[in-house]
Nucleic acid binder design. Structure first.
Lengths: 218, 218, 218, 218
DNA sequence: AATGAATGAGCATTCATTCAT
DNA sequence: CATGAATGAATGCTCATTCAT
């Protein structure tokens, strides 16, 4: 009986960690694993149950519904992304532009290396997110602040041209999200080299905030 | 008997035919409608049938399979987007930057006002696209050339800084796609005004191609 | 438009052969062909229609139902088997035992070389045969008389030990049918050589009618 | 609520278990019943479910697939046939010819009194048997050895003329199978008395192995 | 003589979930 | 804490057949 064959998350979540929380962890890890392996569309409670060698019913002892399970998973993903971004940010404490570039690269790499995770984190239909718990939502939004902070510091250092850091963080996010999405959906023209595409996307995104000669437009 | 309760496409396709083509249209229109209402994941042949008040079998008289139906829909969407972009391009024959901005706006507006199409057009998982007919694929790709042409002309006029027009067209597309996606998925922070977000996204995207004082590294 | 790509039956049936009978023939030939190629289970009116490039409806102009079509086909098969057996019988006019052996071989070979045909001819469930037209049934039964005649002549020549030629013809038929069935169902042990099996089956079947030293009890 | 209206198998299998095995039995018994009533071709999971007044899903709690269900059924039939043959063989330990005759009679009676089993046991198309588990296949083949052993002992006693006992067991099986098949398919001429037909079939089959005066023919 | 349009019934299988234990 | 038993609803798709034209 394997039961715990996948790398475990270091319990980032707010679990009070009584004894039986182990199964909760096992479910989450297995679900994540299945998600990556078979995709969101093919994820089913039964498969999770089969994989952990418990009955489907047991999952419901720990999660109210499939949605609740997914939400927990999204949250974990957001937390991991947070950790990744944070580590990245700390590597460039005094160079906001470099930091911004690194954050962009970090986001894209997170998406590309966790494709199915990415799908549930950012592409789940709004109705499935309706019941997403507000405090988790707030935590997720915190990821954006890394971008906003870099922008703000860049502006304060006079090196970036930023009007509203919060809005700009969102548009940067949009660009990165579009980049990841097209790559994951394999919609990019085969003639275009992936790495060139990514580099260009990041470069142009950042160029949009560098002071320009023609400041005219709108 | 409702039967035709949704706005109809003005028969963009190559049909000018007999009576029985009406049902084909009805199916396509209804499918589009269901797509925006319930999303691709919840779309089923039976639901379509129920909605048009025909038997599921009847759909198969007009489309070989669910995939074929979706492909037809995607193609229609691509063709309409093409028409929109073309009309937009012609409105600014001699001002590449203005044209580029208008094309961006056009794309975003297309996405926001045809959410039915958008999901299947750009977010369908690669497996479902595998059998997408090559000639339709080629037609779809043509939409990108409007962007590439504007970039090229802007470069030739010395007003845009563009290395590879084809790659850049793709990164612009990525930005726009990300923008539309986040809006449709209702992932944007409620505190941010939609119109501001869109305008900013477009402006920054284009700024990325304006000549800058600081020569952007790599 | 091919329409008549398969070898045609030489109109053994009782058709008055007006002009439109051509389609009837085409349907029969195509059905036979499909049967051999794809098996009885996969035979459908639609497939036949597709193959002959007529509408499914058209088939119903010539055959009342799928059953009627199958019955016509069975009849044709029986007639062909009849021809085969007849030709075989005529080759041994004066040697009843040899003739019997040849008839057995002929039957088995017919079965093995027309597997799917054989299936509908002899293995169709009784309820599908209920409405089989009596005159066709009688014609089919005539095939048995070749065996009965050989038995009778063998008895008259004092070379075969036969009580009731009609019953014995049936038991011989049963043996042959069993032999063909097992071979077609691939139920024979792989260690047993097909040809040896067939030869043995025939030999033993005939030996059952040769005069024995031990007068067989009961 | 009928639920258990058919004769039950006395749990030949290796289950001596809990309560839930009852449904498994009910499914098997009902399936057998439906098989004889409607034939293999018309057997569907839904019909079984309807008949046992459970949901179709419930069947899948006990059998992985339709094939698995059929295989279980075939195996049960083979085991019962085995028991019947074994009991028969033991009744004639020292009289190989009598034993052979009794085994033939036993096989035919098994077929005629278990028509439900018969079709799936011996007439299933090879495709459906492909995945038949090898150990079950081996068990099934063991039934043939009763015939082979009787032949061998008859030969050793100098009372039967047998070349290859294994091949001959198969041809005897073929004869019996043909006999049963024609009877079950109701293909026998109504003028022929069933019992006469069966007796004759068995007698002639065995006569084929008695030493003959004319040993000549190949 | 031929068809286009349409359908009701059916298929094997999977799903998330519930409930009594 | 965990489960076995059970289900209603759903899935894409195929079938033989009918009927008005």
């Amino acid at each position: 009986m394997p039961r715990s064959r996948y790398p475990t998350m270091p319990t980032t979540s707010d679990t009070t960690d009584s004894t039986g929380e182990d199964l909760r962890r096992l479910i989450l890890d297995t679900t994540r694993h299945l998600l990556v392996q078979e995709g969101y569309q093919n994820l089913s409670m039964r498969k999770i149950a089969r994989e952990i060698e418990y009955s489907p019913t047991s999952i419901y002892l720990h999660f109210d519904s499939k949605d609740a399970l997914l939400h927990a998973l999204i949250h974990e993903g957001m937390m991991q992304l947070h950790d990744d971004l944070e580590a990245t940010a700390q590597r460039h404490p005094d160079a906001p532009i470099e930091r911004l570039r690194a954050l962009c690269r970090c986001f894209i790499e997170f998406g590309l290396s966790n494709p199915e995770y990415y799908e549930v984190m950012f592409q789940l239909r709004p109705e499935r997110m309706e019941r997403y718990p507000p405090e988790k939502y707030r935590a997720a939004r915190r990821n954006l602040t890394f971008f906003a902070e870099a922008l703000t510091q860049g502006r304060e250092a006079g090196r970036l041209h930023v009007e509203d850091a919060s809005v700009s963080a969102s548009t940067i996010w949009a660009s990165l999200h579009g980049t990841v999405s097209l790559l994951l959906a394999e919609r990019l023209d085969v003639q275009i080299d992936r790495e060139t595409f990514i580099t260009t996307a990041i470069r142009q995104t950042i160029r949009g905030y560098l002071p320009s000669t023609q400041s005219a437009t709108s």
